[in-house]
Design a protein around this nucleic acid. Structure first.
Lengths: 183, 183
DNA sequence: TAGATTGTTAATCGATTAACAATC
DNA sequence: TAGATTGTTAATCGATTAACAATC
């Protein structure tokens, strides 16, 4: 809407664009504050700012990448993170052959130094691109070191304390979500 | 459970492992049939077979990949599809420089021939790894050609008819789902 | 002032859970 | 036969929607 040059919107328009009812929009927003004006609606830039603040995407997050194989390399080379508030600051692998080499401009560090690094630099988010068989043990180390969120590229289900958030990137799972509907 | 050598399970055990109530397990399964035995529970291999059939993941699905840039190359080289019932059979790009070359063992074909190919081969699922700016126009062509499900790697929101299913792979979106909970 | 739209309360709807007859 | 667990109905819970006073 900002790109379209619009200044004000309403719960009705937001609902229409998002496929929700206007009541849902107002109810959800009201959980976090009063962002609109009666009779007028919502100022779009103000609302966007508030939403970014609420979701904590109004800052730059540092990320540790674990795993420098094919998948890790693809992730490290992906250019879409920085623009959208995320920055890989460290890359780790366990393979002595890889340690010291570079991928995507990052030096590959030894996982042995990972826990201490993460504690020191207070990195909160990690991306996991290790083989499925290693994912749980690496996760345990990350959690122990104070990581609070993990984006996991391995096709496994990780066990973590409730306080740690996990999201998975598994293209096959996404495909499987759709086959049911395909005839 | 199969790997663990177990033969029979119950709605209670399934619920426990999945973080759901036993009633939820029974209710959901009963939507599709009667898979258990009173007093005994569910035969695990039989249940798994039935679930695969219901979800249509008991077959090999052919997939068209559109876009042979960095992302497309990574997708084409990803070895995890075939084992899990998906096979890329065609790769397309619009760049004359790329057409005829190979990525991940696939010859890159001209998008100009895509619609006719898809109609002829009856491919139902496509993966989209084109620049965000091209995603909608390519999607329109795919839908027109009869594609029923699209896995989109571009960070955009695609407009498609209700009958077409879409799933997105956007690591930044996944990261943004977690920042709210990170302190 | 009249019209429009918010934030919120009350009503409705649908999903989850509890309970139990059926039966292995 | 006694114990266990299913599939399903009824009860409960929570989420969505409708309605409206407040007010810009």
């Amino acid at each position: 809407m900002i790109a379209e040059g619009k200044v004000i919107t309403s719960s009705q328009e937001l609902g229409q664009r998002l496929g929700l009812s206007s009541a849902q929009i107002r109810k959800d927003l009201s959980q976090f504050g009063e962002f609109g004006k009666q009779g007028t609606g919502y100022n779009i830039t103000f609302l966007a700012e508030q939403l970014r603040r609420i979701l904590k995407v109004d800052q730059l997050w540092n990320i540790a990448l674990v795993g420098a194989g094919d998948l890790g390399r693809a992730v490290a080379n992906y250019g879409g993170f920085f623009d959208r508030g995320f920055r890989i600051t460290k890359v780790y692998d366990i393979d002595p052959q890889k340690i010291g080499q570079r991928i995507g401009g990052f030096i590959i560090h030894d996982v042995a130094s990972m826990a201490a690094d993460i504690r020191k630099t207070k990195i909160k988010i990690a991306m996991l691109a290790v083989p499925a068989a290693d994912a749980q043990s690496v996760t345990d180390k990350l959690v122990e070191a104070g990581i609070q969120a993990i984006l996991c590229y391995a096709p496994v289900s990780l066990k973590v304390p409730e306080s740690v958030k996990i999201q998975y990137i598994d293209p096959v799972l996404r495909l499987q979500h759709m086959t049911y509907y395909v005839s």
